[in-house]
């Protein structure tokens, strides 16, 4: 134990401020992905009180849809179209495809169980998760695939612009793809907050989340509102999948499991049902993971993240924003 602490302090000292910023940057980028996925958990929990275990796998499908588009256009090395339209199409197809998948999951796996005991849809969610993972395994032959995004837009085998630095802080470059990930995540989250707080669908969602029966008696088509919620949640997960593919690169059929688990951790730490909580805690989990990798060691990072979840649940079972449980969506 002493040795471990000593190693950590030693590591902090040797990495210095530059290293600290590097970990901060990595944590924020990773955390943006967790936030996007965590939002899905929290929205679906908010409206149905259901832990949608299949949500991480929707993210995986999103990553593969993006990869499919990339491959269809000739792969990272020789895409048939320009970099910007390609990335836009990748996002569009992955988001739309994931959204439709989410609606389908709700329609066929959860809606028939709407009035069943709460354990039934939970088991169905696990089933959907296995179904998606195993289907993906069959369809992708169980291999890992790489976006090779560093080659995107490059000529004659040279690296493309995605990993060029946009600016440098303390000797650490912040690359195009990192700005892209954080920028689009922030945009999507801002759009979500606007949607939930200002639009009629947002009001209908909050009403349905609070009291489904009363909402339906006020003329709100709750089935449709629930479908829309699944669509939006899955769109965000699909976007996160493509972002992961562009940033980290490796997509495989099981990638949704751990990412989903961590995003779920974020949703719980943020106070499940709270949208702002999921956003904040997603970044928090990303940062903890990043600093744990840097200072404690990569093999420890998951232990640290989930250890914090356990501690957090003991100290504050309602989560960060759980005191305002009433503000849920």
């Amino acid at each position: 134990m002493h040795l471990l602490l000593f190693n950590i302090i030693d590591q902090i000292r040797s990495l210095g401020w530059g290293g600290a910023f590097e970990l901060l940057r990595n944590g924020i980028v990773l955390g943006s992905l967790y936030s996007l996925i965590a939002l899905g958990y929290t929205m679906i929990y908010g409206i149905l009180k259901l832990l949608n275990f299949a949500h991480g796998d929707v993210y995986m499908v999103g990553a593969f849809l993006g990869f499919g588009v990339l491959t269809a256009f000739g792969g990272a090395l020789n895409p048939g179209i320009g970099l910007v339209p390609l990335i836009i199409i990748m996002f569009a197809v992955a988001m739309l495809g994931s959204g439709v998948l989410g609606v389908g999951i709700e329609r066929f796996a959860y809606r028939p169980l709407r009035n069943a005991p709460r354990i039934a849809p939970l088991i169905a969610a696990l089933g959907v998760s296995f179904f998606l993972e195993n289907s993906a395994q069959l369809m992708t032959n169980g291999f890992q695939y790489n976006y090779d995004a560093f080659q995107l837009g490059g000529k004659n085998g040279n690296f493309g612009p995605l990993f060029d630095p946009v600016f440098t802080v303390a000797g650490n470059p912040v690359t195009v793809v990192q700005v892209l990930v954080v920028g689009s995540a922030v945009t999507l989250m801002a759009a979500l907050i606007f949607l939930v707080s200002r639009t009629r669908l947002g009001k209908a969602m909050r009403a349905t989340a609070f009291d489904q029966e009363a909402a339906s008696m006020m003329g709100i088509d709750t089935d449709r509102v629930i479908s829309s919620t699944f669509f939006i949640a899955s769109v965000l997960a699909g976007a996160a999948g493509v972002m992961y593919g562009l940033y980290i690169g490796t997509t495989f059929y099981f990638m949704g499991f751990l990412a989903g688990l961590k995003a779920f951790t974020a949703a719980v730490v943020g106070g499940i049902g709270s949208i702002v909580g999921a956003m904040v805690a997603g970044v928090l989990v990303g940062l903890i993971e990043s600093y744990a990798i840097g200072y404690v060691g990569g093999q420890w990072s998951d232990i640290v993240v989930f250890g914090i979840l356990i501690l957090f649940m003991i100290v504050r079972p309602t989560g960060l924003f759980g005191a305002q449980a009433i503000q849920k969506v």
Binding site: A204, R206, D221
Partner: peptide
């Protein structure tokens, strides 16, 4: 059975959902 998570006016606005059309 009010929507206690919403403001007073939002409660009254939400119940007009059936009378309104604008999509997402």
């Amino acid at each position: 059975r009010l929507f206690l998570n919403m403001t007073v006016i939002e409660n009254v606005m939400a119940s007009q959902y059936g009378q309104t059309k604008v999509g997402i």
